[in-house]
């Protein structure tokens, strides 16, 4: 009985909220609503069409011509075909799906972790060890973000070639071992706002600098660190232009999809196969997103608010 009352009151409060929300809507908000609804609908249609197409057989899509509708017979043959045959040929070497997944994991996890860690540590040093060199570091980050120098990729490639790190994953990690970028400023602002009391107490108790960093400071920013790591991870997983420039013979999954979408190879020329490979590429990152949705979508702000 109590359960029924509880459910009823929940339903009432939900209805009240909805009515209140509807009351707040005015002409302006209805116009924006219409735009947003159309835009969202266009995204849904494209994603849904892609998802459905991956379950259509090549025969159904290409020969029978069922392009628009639901699959007449849902089939996994495209997925099986992609898992068994997806490969990229570069300079005489063949890279299979598992090679590309491994390269993607190495590239995305490695670069995301290295960059996040370096930015975090350097931001800590700049924020908490306030002497002249720390100010220099801070201003270097600001200036490099403000001045857009174009076309230095070719010089970076030459530099990597000179030290023998071009076209190697280690070289990629070395490139990402830098503290420049907006996330440095996010970490810097966080460290500046952290009180010195805990670290000070540990210092008085005889803790060393490394001990304070590992046991006190890093746990305090662990959430922030993980969120930025996730954002970097998604960015690097999806990035295909940078690997194409610096590790051209280590194709990631993104590179594979890019190669596939413009490749004239007959066996991969079917739209259903190409779309299926896109769906496969998206699945891991969608899982990460679904698990950490709240963390990713609620924690990003930049530039601040005027008081």
């Amino acid at each position: 009985m109590n359960n029924i009352f509880a459910k009823e009151s929940k339903l009432r409060s939900w209805l009240r909220r909805k009515i209140k929300a509807a009351e707040k809507m005015n002409v302006f908000s209805w116009i924006v609503f219409a735009f947003l609804a159309l835009l969202t609908l266009s995204f849904i249609i494209v994603y849904l069409w892609g998802f459905m197409t991956s379950f259509k057989s090549i025969l159904e899509f290409d020969t029978i011509g069922n392009i628009v509708g639901l699959p007449e017979q849902w089939t996994f043959e495209n997925f099986i075909f992609v898992f068994e045959n997806f490969r990229v040929k570069l300079n005489g070497t063949t890279f299979y799906l598992e090679d590309m997944i491994l390269n993607s994991l190495l590239y995305a996890v490695g670069c995301a972790f290295i960059q996040t860690a370096v930015q975090c540590i350097v931001a800590y040093l700049a924020a908490k060890f306030r002497f002249k060199f720390s100010s220099v570091i801070y201003w270097v980050v600001i200036i490099t973000m403000t001045i857009p120098v174009v076309g230095t990729d070719i010089s970076t490639i030459q530099m990597l070639q000179n030290i023998g790190l071009y076209d190697s994953m280690i070289g990629m990690f070395v490139l990402k071992f830098n503290f420049l970028g907006a996330y440095f400023l996010v970490f810097y602002a966080t460290f500046r706002s952290l009180p010195d009391d805990y670290a000070g107490a540990a210092y008085v108790d005889g803790a060393g600098e490394f001990g304070i960093l590992i046991h006190i400071i890093l746990p305090m920013v662990a959430n922030m660190f993980f969120t930025i790591f996730l954002l970097n991870l998604i960015m690097y997983w999806n990035d295909y232009r940078t690997p194409l420039l610096y590790i051209p013979n280590h194709p990631t999954l993104s590179n594979g999809i890019q190669w596939l979408s413009t490749s004239p190879t007959q066996e991969f020329s079917h739209t259903t196969v190409r779309i299926t490979s896109c769906i496969i590429m998206v699945i891991p990152i969608l899982i990460v997103f679904i698990i950490f949705k709240g963390r990713i979508m609620n924690k990003v702000s930049l530039g601040g608010i005027k008081e």
């Binding site: 197409t53 993104s254 999809i257 590429m281 969608l286």
Partner: peptide
């Protein structure tokens, strides 16, 4: 969603669509 899905995937879907 397009920010977390690879650009190449969204472009491919748009292109084939």
């Amino acid at each position: 969603l397009p920010s977390i899905i690879s650009e190449i995937v969204v472009v491919s879907l748009f292109k084939y669509f």
